[in-house]
Nucleic acid binder design. Structure first.
Lengths: 180, 180
DNA sequence: AAGTTAAAATAACAAGTGTTACGATTACAT
DNA sequence: ATGTAATCGTAACACTTGTTATTTTAACTT
């Protein structure tokens, strides 16, 4: 019979994802992943047809990672979009490489912002309904305006051009909501 | 005496800049620039010590290009930051590769947002003073909040997640200013 | 113990990168 | 015309990339 596999799909995907997270997506190359996983490049191509497939898997893992990050983020904001926005901005600050991959890359097969935000839980819809219930006349437009604001803050944090503190972020977000 | 030069610094820099603009900064390689300029890679290394120097020159040219773009952009907005913001968002839409390079890259020697926006003309200061003259209590804070909004819209346009029309942009920007 | 078979390692290929060594070319002074 | 010297093209080096061919290794059946 055949030899038992010593490097699993999980080993490879785990390693590749950690590298994407810590060193950036561009560093997820066949040889570098193999080196970090402690094997040759061969097991990668047994499990994945080619590097594109591995990259796609890493991307999808990053989507799940973000959704978990949001779930675990403390829900202190009292206004709609406030917690979602704060989680998003904190994610940009703390997970720069993943943020770039998810929300700024030109990767083929990239999901839309809406798809990534929504996941299985439908966060955006929840917030929009909440805004509507709180008397917001145009919750869709509100979401869009809020999100421009949120995405702007996230990107500025990324480049270091302006990095809001959590308190500032919260205050600005809630103020922004009032103004809508 | 020596042979006369047939490929100038301008030839190389022009070619490299056009490539950065049309094909993206990552495609500005020695061989590709040479091919497009119709010469070997040798003239590049006569004029620039190495590729880093050429890339730096391309970057600085992009900064000037943006500043000219803003100067030439029609000043229809009646509120502070409105025209600057519209020009910035239009730039993101029309010059995606240059926008990435200028405002989202991790390039070494990258200027801060403020430096790029200000240039020699001091656009930001002008707008802040104008806001102050129009009775805005906290023009610095106003600028910052407006800019989060503007940058957010620009980045969303870049990724195609949400592309505002000029009219929408203008309306939102002026509405945002009122709310500040 | 020998044979089978899949997994993993080694090594190579082809294409790309920055960079450099080396001639050939060309323009001018002599 | 000849010499000089800088410019440019050719070719190479050293390195990286994805991918594949080949060999070695290991596990189980017989």
């Amino acid at each position: 019979m055949a030899r038992k596999e010593s490097i699993t799909v999980q080993d490879i995907l785990d390693t590749a994802f950690i590298m994407a997270r810590e060193e950036g997506f561009a560093n997820v190359t066949a040889r570098k992943v193999a080196a970090k996983a402690g094997c040759s490049t061969q097991p990668i191509f047994r499990v994945y047809r080619n590097m594109d497939e591995l990259w796609q898997a890493v991307y999808e893992r990053a989507v799940l990672f973000f959704q978990d990050y949001y779930e675990a983020y403390p829900k202190t904001g009292r206004k709609p979009f406030s917690s979602l926005g704060m989680a998003y901005i904190a994610f940009a600050r703390e997970e720069k490489h993943l943020f770039r991959l998810l929300f700024l890359s030109e990767m083929a097969g990239r999901k839309s912002l809406y798809e990534v935000l929504n996941g299985e839980k439908g966060n955006v819809l929840t917030e929009i309904n909440q805004a509507s219930a709180m008397g917001c006349g145009d919750p869709q437009g509100m979401f869009m305006r809020m999100w421009l604001f949120i995405h702007g803050a996230a990107c500025m944090s990324l480049t270091g051009d302006y990095d809001l503190s959590d308190a500032e972020t919260k205050q600005l977000l809630e103020q922004e909501y009032v103004n809508g």
